[in-house]
Structure formats: C-alpha cells, structure tokens
Amino acid sequence: MAQSNNSPPVRRPVLRKVMAVAGALAFATAGVGALHMPFARSLLMRIGGCPMAGAHMTPKEMENARHIALPTERGSFLAPARPSVGFALDTTSLAEVHAWADRDKVDCEDKHAGLVICTNVQPAALGLPETEGVVDELALAFNERLLLVNETTMRTHLTPQGAERAAHAILDSLIAKLGPANEHVGDFGARKLSGPAASSISTVSYRYTDYVADVSAMNSPHSGPLVREHYMSAND
C-alpha cells in the first residue's frame, strides 16, 4: 500500500502494523496450503494430520458406530479366512499404512484421527492383479489401538465391461478363499451394468462371527458403473 504524502505521520505506525499482520496471515495461509499439497502430506500425517479435518469423529466414535451395527451383521461361524485389500484386519497398524503410502508414493491423507483416505491407488500398490483396476478411493479405518478394522474401496466412472472385469476378479478371489457367498444377487455382468440404476445392482455378502465382507456394483446415474468393496472385522 503506497504511503500518501498527505497522510498524517501518526498513521504510519498503524499502517505498518496492519501490513505486518496481513503479511503474517498470508504467510500462514500459504504454509497451511503447502502442508496440504501431495508432496507434503506425509509430513502432515506425521505431525497428526490436519487439525481442522473431521473434528467430530475420533477412533472411539468410529468404534461406537461399528459396534452399533455389528450385532445384526455377524454370522454364525468363524471365517475360514478374512481377506481384505492390501492389508490385514486387526493386524495392520496406522503406522504401517503411513509407511506404505510413503514407500509406494500413494496419495493418502489422514482425514481425521483413525481414518486414512487414499486416492487413485494403482492395483500393484495393493498387491492386486491389473484386472481389478485402479482404486479411486481407498478408505482405511482404525480402532483405538490404531489397528485396521474397516476398509472400503470405490472404483468409479468405469465402463460396463471394466466394471464387470474388476468385479469378477474380486469375486473370484473371494470365492477361492471363502467359498460361495451367504447372499448373492445379480451377475455383475456388463449388460446389467449398462441398464438403469435400480436394476443394475449386483451384490454379494459374506457374514461370519469375526468378519464381514460385501461387494456391490451399480450403474450410478452420476458416477457411471462403479464397484464397491467393504471388508470389516466383526471382533469386539
């Protein structure tokens, strides 16, 4: 701001203070913004994540949510295996996920304590075959001991053929480890996924005393054919 030759001398100190404050604010804003850039996110995660993100949820409340729903979701038998995507339920730690994201250069962010969201994850980074396709969003939720208990993936804006290929690859893997699903509706076929949203839905569910898994596909009116996986520990 230019100093007017007509400004009384008494205003100059005030103007300097205003400019100093404005400059500090601008610097802080730029710094906060920089911390949220992809290259700096690992640093942000190490210092505890964004303090403004998801302020309402903590691992405690996330666990409350999981336990509210669990009683009606559990099956009657122990799972022969508990497959998930890239990580192990009740075993993988938050620190291990952070290390993986750094090592494999995956774009992940701690949305709030105990919730990591990763985007545009290549199948190889998760140990998956190419046929399962890129994961647009990977959500990883941790309990109060910071162990993974809940995981979802979303693959969106697929072609019907791409959704069919990804879904069948996922289902074949689950069937190999768990056998047929408890519930199975729809064929996850390209023709079905080309149709109207409501009639395009295919879904399978596995329910055990210690494990829950769901895979769904749908032709979303806004996101096109999409595939969602959900894997969750049913342990207390």
Binding site: M52, A53, G54, A55, H56, M57, K111, H112, L115, I117, N120, E130, T131, G133, V134, D136, E137, A139, M154, R155, T156, H157, L158, T159, Q161, G162, A163, E164, R165, A166, S223, G224
Partner: peptide, 23 residues
C-alpha cells in the same frame, strides 16, 4: 466433489470412462 468424509472439500472427481484395468 467425490465421495468424502465430513467435512469434505470441493475437490472434483476425475471423470471419463475407464476400462477398469488402466486408469
């Protein structure tokens, strides 16, 4: 914006169809 937890951002999703194998 894409699917996101609360509070979200205005980040847009990547559009375009994919064959599912290669983004």
């Amino acid at each position: 914006a894409g699917d996101q937890p609360f509070p979200g951002t205005t980040t847009t999703t990547d559009g375009g169809a994919s064959d599912g194998a290669i983004e």
